[in-house]
């Protein structure tokens, strides 16, 4: 059995919880509770390598950039098709499914290299607001990609209303652009 509009209700609930979290003291408490985790991150193998060998850190950073470029390519190709500016003559479902595969692999590398870098500079980024904005954008992006965008396009996407298509594509591009741009800004801060 299914609740009518269950997914929409779940989405609204999640938004309400997120908003409540952001506007209440719970946000600050959660942040304070995370300090030991970030202190521990610097003592891990990744943290020690990242702090000791600048060259290794830079190579991982280059890997992070490259996989981010790949992710950007997958997002732009998929959302470009959704907006109707790319691959208009190709079946929507096939382009989405194939771009999604590239997206997932890039995301795996992005997150892995990202965790490595975070371990090297854990305490620095812990105190940077822009780092938390980025994590929030990343979380929103991942939830959106896997729980909203993917199911929406999984079956019979050709019949979707053009409005929904466009709004989803714009939101998706916006999220991943923000993830990348705030990431760049972490490097300039602190």
């Amino acid at each position: 059995m299914a609740i009518p509009f269950g997914r929409t209700l779940a989405c609204a609930l999640l938004l309400a919880v997120g908003l409540g979290f952001a506007l209440s003291n719970a946000r600050v408490e959660a942040w304070q509770a995370l300090l030991p985790l970030f202190e521990w991150m610097e003592t891990t193998l990744f943290g020690v390598i990242g702090k000791t060998w600048g060259g290794v850190f830079a190579v991982v950073q280059a890997g992070h950039l490259l996989s981010m470029a790949m992710l950007g390519g997958a997002v732009l190709a998929a959302d470009g098709r959704l907006l109707g500016v790319l691959f208009r003559d190709q079946p929507l479902a096939a382009v989405q499914a194939q771009a999604h595969r590239v997206f997932v692999w890039s995301l795996v590398v992005v997150v892995f290299t990202g965790v490595f870098m975070a371990c090297g500079v854990a305490i620095k980024i812990y105190y940077l607001p822009v780092f938390w904005y980025k994590m929030l954008a990343l979380l929103v992006g991942v939830l959106f990609a896997f729980l909203v965008r993917r199911p929406l396009l999984a079956d019979d996407p050709e019949t979707l209303s053009p409005l929904v298509r466009r709004v989803v594509a714009v939101a998706s591009i916006m999220v991943w652009f923000t993830v990348a741009a705030t990431g760049r800004w972490i490097g300039f801060s602190g």
Binding site: F5, R7, T8, C11, L15, F144, V148, L152, L163, V164
Partner: peptide, 10 residues
Amino acid sequence: DRQAAALLAS
């Protein structure tokens, strides 16, 4: 449902 959820989230 999926369309409404997508519209709300987006």
